[in-house]
Design a protein around this nucleic acid. Structure first.
Lengths: 181, 181
DNA sequence: AGAAACATTGACGTTCGCGTTAACGTTGAG
DNA sequence: CTCAACGTTAACGCGAACGTCAATGTTTCT
C-alpha cells in the first residue's frame, strides 16, 4: 500500500514502485546509482520513498530502453535535457534578466529538436524497412492468389500457421503505422 | 583492394569487409561465431573471403542493431526467417507437391507479418513520443513569439544555439516523418 | 629471399545491465 | 514485545558484445 507522508502526497516504497513500473528493486537502485533518478527521499529508517514523479520517470526510462533500445547513458542525457527544461520552467518567474530567459528557452528548444530529429531518423528508416517487408507480403499474396486460380475450385485455405498480427495492412507501402492500428 | 577470385565475382578480405561495414574484424569473426553469418569462404591460406552478399548481410545486421536495438539473438531469428525465405524461393521450382508450396509460403508470409507488426508497434510508440516533443516545441515557440511582442521592436534573435535539425517539422503532431525529410 | 602488411586462432579483459546472496536494520500487526 | 514482511548496503556473479594482446601463419612487393 502506498505510504501517505503528510496531507495528500503519496509516496511508494521500493517494492510497490517496482511493481508499478514492472522493474525490479535492484533495477531501481541501479538506476539511482547511475544517476538516472535523483536520489528519492527516505523515511526515518532509511527506506526509500518514491514520489509519483519518480515513478513516472521510471516508466519513461523503461520506454526509452525497450522502445528505442537506448543505453542507460543515452537515456541519462535525454533526461538531463528534460531536467534542464523543468528547472528552466521553475526559474521562469524569478529570473530577472530578460534575454537570459529567451536564451534558456532557446537551448531547451534546441535539445528537444535534436531529440525529435533523432526520432525522425529512426522512424524514417523503420518505415523503409516496413515498406520492403510489405512488398514481400504483397508478392506472396499475389503468388498465392494466382496459384489458387490455376488450381481451380480446390480452395487451399492457407490461413498462415500462426498469428496474423499485422492484419491486412501490408499494402500502402509508406502509410503511417498509426493508421493501421 | 577487393580480391577477384575468378571471372567477375569479387570477394573481400576481412579488413576491407570491416572497413565497408564500419565494423571491426573482431566483430565480423564474432558474428560468424554466433551464427549470424554463414561461415564465409576461405582462400588457400585460410584467409576469410566475404562475398557481396555477406557484406550486405552485415550491413543489415548493423541496421537491426543500431536502428531497432535488437540483441544479436533476435537478429539471428529475423535472419533465419529470411534464410528460410530464400531457401523456399530456390526450392520453388523443383518442389513437387502443390499444397506444400502454399504451406511454405504461408509460413514465410506469417513471419514477415510478425516482423511488420513489430515494426508498427515501435513506430506507433515513437510517433506518440514525437508528438509530445513537438507539442513542447510549439509551446516554446509561442512563448518566445509572445515574448518578442511584448518586448517591442528589440528583436531578440534567438537562433537556438546549436543544430536546428528537425527544421520546422514541429507542427502536424502525427505526420509521417518521411514527409519531413 | 626478405620484409611489410595482413590474417588466424586462442585466450584473457572489459563494460553494461542487472541477478543473487549474505548479513543486517526497520516497520507494522497482533 | 515479538515476529513476519519489508527494506538496506556490500559484494560477487553472469551473459552479451565485443576489445585487446600474443604467438603464429600468409600474401605481396621488391
Amino acid at each position: 500500500m502506498p505510504v501517505a507522508v503528510n496531507s495528500e502526497e503519496t509516496y511508494f516504497q521500493i517494492g510497490e514502485a517496482a511493481d508499478r513500473t514492472r522493474l525490479t528493486q535492484r533495477t531501481l537502485r541501479y538506476y539511482e546509482e547511475k544517476g538516472l533518478l535523483k536520489s528519492p527521499s527516505r523515511m526515518d529508517g532509511g527506506f526509500r520513498l518514491y514520489s509519483r514523479e519518480d515513478v513516472e520517470r521510471l516508466e519513461r526510462i523503461k520506454e526509452f530502453k525497450d522502445l528505442l533500445g537506448f543505453s542507460l547513458a543515452e537515456i541519462r542525457e535525454m533526461l538531463d535535457a528534460e531536467d534542464l527544461r523543468l528547472q528552466t520552467r521553475s526559474e521562469w518567474r524569478r529570473d530577472a534578466d530578460a534575454s537570459e530567459k529567451a536564451a534558456k528557452i532557446g537551448v531547451v528548444r534546441g535539445m528537444t529538436l535534436q531529440q525529435m530529429s533523432l526520432l525522425d531518423d529512426k522512424m524514417k528508416k523503420m518505415a523503409t524497412m516496413r515498406g520492403e517487408l510489405a512488398e514481400r507480403v504483397d508478392k506472396y499474396d499475389s503468388l498465392l492468389a494466382q496459384w489458387a486460380e490455376t488450381a481451380g475450385k480446390e480452395r487451399t485455405g492457407w490461413a498462415s500457421t500462426s498469428g496474423e498480427t499485422a492484419t491486412k495492412c501490408s499494402v500502402a507501402p509508406m502509410s503511417i503505422p498509426a493508421a493501421c492500428g
